[in-house]
């Protein structure tokens, strides 16, 4: 199992803030809107550098989505920012009609996704957002894994014409991808080549999967690890190529099992290449208050659970 050097430990939302600030300097059409969470979303740099292109909308997310659609009509590239819960579930119909169906070039940027939001509890810990967004025609869904990748994804989506949902999080996590990697929407990233099992991971679970890979290597299991940062469109070719080799799959994500990355991969494999799959995800439950690490453990989302899932799926080969 390949070793990954941790450059530092940083929150993915700061990667978003840094990417947005850079876009402000390079792309005059980029505008930003925020629903009273500028600090939490790390949008303060953009706000300070480009006050004429930043719109504070207050605690009014439905209006924010409509405003963004209207700005996109006028050839602006709007980035909306709030928590993932208020970016999706709260404004689903606004996104559906004014953004997705109308195919507007709006970037819905969502922080504090999943249980790692922590102590605020289940009211704020959305675990259904990937499912909600991936069901919408025209929508691209991206969930990067660390600071560098989130920054690169933020910059990349400005050049993609069409609605995008960009999901990231609150806690500081290992930053291990290269700061110079170009982000390619829809391209699965091979992190480690192996032959016994493929782990497909997204977001915060990519690092957990790396740790699991090392534990499994010690047990003599040779893991192929692929980072699926783009859940839609799914890189079907890369997934099928890997599974043809390993014939066993574990998916890992900080999301409900229903509607997440694992769900998309299972659909693909059921159609193209029926294969045993184990899913590391939240099993039809809401979260609760706690620290991010406690919650990852409580809901079965850490490296230990990925190791166990690999051992289960190996027996089903």
């Amino acid at each position: 199992m390949k070793k990954f050097e941790v450059q530092n430990v940083k929150d993915t939302r700061s990667g978003f803030g840094a990417g947005l600030s850079e876009l402000g300097k390079t792309n005059p059409n980029v505008v930003a809107l925020c629903a009273d969470l500028t600090g939490s979303l790390k949008m303060d740099a953009f706000q300070k550098e480009h006050p004429e292109r930043f719109f504070q909308v207050g605690i009014a997310e439905a209006n924010m989505i409509g405003l963004a659609a209207g700005l996109a009509i006028g050839d602006k590239i709007p980035f909306t920012g709030t928590f993932a819960n208020f970016s999706t579930g709260r404004v689903y119909d606004q996104i559906r009609q004014s953004v997705a169906y109308s195919n507007k070039n709006v970037k819905i940027c969502a922080s504090h996704a999943g249980v790692t939001l922590g102590e605020d509890g289940a009211t704020h810990q959305i675990l259904e957002d990937i499912g909600l967004m991936k069901m919408l025609p025209n929508m691209t869904v991206i969930n990067p894994c660390d600071y560098n990748q989130t920054k690169a994804a933020t910059i990349a989506i400005a050049d993609h014409e069409g609605p995008v949902y960009l999901r990231f999080g609150r806690p500081a996590v290992p930053n291990f991808t290269s700061a110079t990697d170009k982000f390619e929407i829809g391209k699965a990233l091979m992190l480690n080549e192996g032959s016994d099992v493929t782990i497909f991971a997204t977001g915060h679970l990519v690092w957990q999967a790396i740790e699991a890979g090392h534990i499994l290597a010690e047990k003599g299991i040779n893991v192929e690890l692929i980072n699926i940062h783009t859940i839609k469109p799914l890189d079907a070719q890369a997934i099928l190529n890997s599974v043809r080799k390993t014939r066993a799959v574990v998916t890992a994500e900080e999301h409900q099992m229903n509607g997440g990355l694992g769900d998309s991969i299972c659909q693909l494999l059921a159609r193209e290449l029926p294969t045993p799959v184990e899913m590391v995800a939240v099993n039809d439950s809401f979260g609760q208050s706690g620290t991010p690490d406690e919650l990852m453990k409580e809901y079965g989302l850490d490296a230990t659970n990925i190791v166990a899932a690999v051992e289960r799926v190996m027996k089903r080969k």
């Binding site: 439905a62 209006n63 989505i65 409509g66 659609a69 700005l71 709007p78 606004q94 009609q97 507007k104």
Partner: peptide
């Protein structure tokens, strides 16, 4: 813009006005 699900037009128009 698509419309029909009500209450969204003023928001969209305000965004277009900002642009």
């Amino acid at each position: 813009i698509a419309s029909g699900s009500l209450g969204q037009g003023v928001s969209v128009a305000a965004g277009a006005a900002l642009s």
